[in-house]
């Protein structure tokens, strides 16, 4: 396999918990606790998991919007996890993000034209006239009229705003776009439009996507490969078909069984894990899933399982899975 566009190894984002008065460190939230990911050029990796499992933090720390506390992020072969801001600048052009909430991600005091011209101003690309042309071209690319540039974000609907957010992410012609639940705040009828737009842009521009989502229906539609996260760790990574039809990790199986089944009777009964997701401030020892796992054995409580390859491109972090 050729060198991946993005290779993440052992990524950690730990937040200190400090006491109210003396600001002493009294604990750690392990939001991301040793995540390995790879994204090839032009492919879509979906990152799925429940709320609070660390998938958004993983995405934002890859972009260094949240500082990782450990691990390695290699983009196109270069280690960027500890680059100072100045050396990070060229990578800002190559990795972008589309946010979940299209109402919060556009500055309400800037016109759409101002929002879309900002990437060019920041990177000193072109003059005013040239930038205006680029903005118009971006708007056309995402299916909005060029006149939209003169308007303010509040004059647009959620779906239109998300198109503007996508246009901004594309302005600098990135190679990787991280979609942080890009459609979950939209009406279902609009979700399909935005997903199709993103797929079309991927085909036209050769983009790689990391799609962060909790919606497995969306994932099954867009992903080439899927990584499942639980409590700060990736428990299973697999090509889309393998994940949906041959999930090996007990957590993945439980997650899939929770999806409403469009073809009745095809899959076995729901498996609902017992209890709640433990707090990432106090994760269970060994495999994070063991207190809720129906199959847990004694070893699961002592030793964190390393990912093992069960098929080409299919890795599972579970003691009970044999290759």
């Amino acid at each position: 396999m050729a060198e991946p566009l993005l290779q993440v190894r052992g990524l950690e984002v730990h937040f200190p918990i400090r006491s109210a008065m003396l600001r002493r460190r009294i604990g750690t939230v392990r939001a991301v606790d040793g995540v390995d990911l790879e994204v090839a050029r032009g492919e879509t990796l979906a990152l799925v998991g429940e709320s609070g499992c660390g998938k958004t933090t993983t995405g934002k720390s890859i972009l260094r919007l949240i500082e990782p506390t450990g691990g390695s992020i290699r983009f196109a072969g270069e280690e960027i996890a500890r680059h100072p801001p100045a050396r990070l600048a060229p990578f800002r052009r190559r990795m972008q993000i589309v946010f979940q909430d299209p109402y919060a991600s556009l500055n309400p005091r800037m016109t759409v034209g101002g929002i879309l011209a900002a990437p060019f101003e920041i990177h000193r690309i072109g003059d005013a006239k040239d930038r205006a042309e680029r903005v118009a071209a971006l708007l056309r690319t995402v299916g909005l009229p060029p006149e939209a540039a003169r308007r303010y974000p509040h004059e647009f609907s959620g779906g239109q705003r998300q198109r503007i957010g996508i246009a901004r992410a594309l302005a600098l012609e990135p190679e990787l776009v991280i979609g942080d639940e890009p459609v979950s705040a939209l009406d279902v009828s609009i979700q399909a439009q935005i997903i199709n737009l993103m797929k079309r842009l991927q085909a036209e521009l050769g983009l790689a996507y990391i799609m962060i989502s909790h919606n497995l229906a969306v994932v099954s539609h867009v992903a080439d490969r899927v990584a499942v996260m639980y409590l700060g760790r990736v428990v299973e990574t697999a090509p889309r078909e393998a994940l949906f039809f041959d999930a090996r990790h007990p957590y993945t199986q439980a997650l899939l069984s929770a999806v409403p089944e469009p073809v009745p009777g095809r899959r076995r009964a729901r498996q609902v894990p017992q209890g709640d997701v433990p707090s990432p401030a106090n994760p269970p020892p060994g495999c994070h899933f063991h207190p809720r796992c129906p199959l847990a054995i004694a070893r699961c409580a002592q030793e964190a399982p390393a990912p093992r390859i069960v098929a080409p491109g299919h890795a599972v972090a579970c003691h009970l899975v044999s290759p």
Partner: peptide
Amino acid sequence: QDFVAAARALGAS
């Protein structure tokens, strides 16, 4: 707010 994160992602000072 996310619009500030977006500006940082673009490399704004």
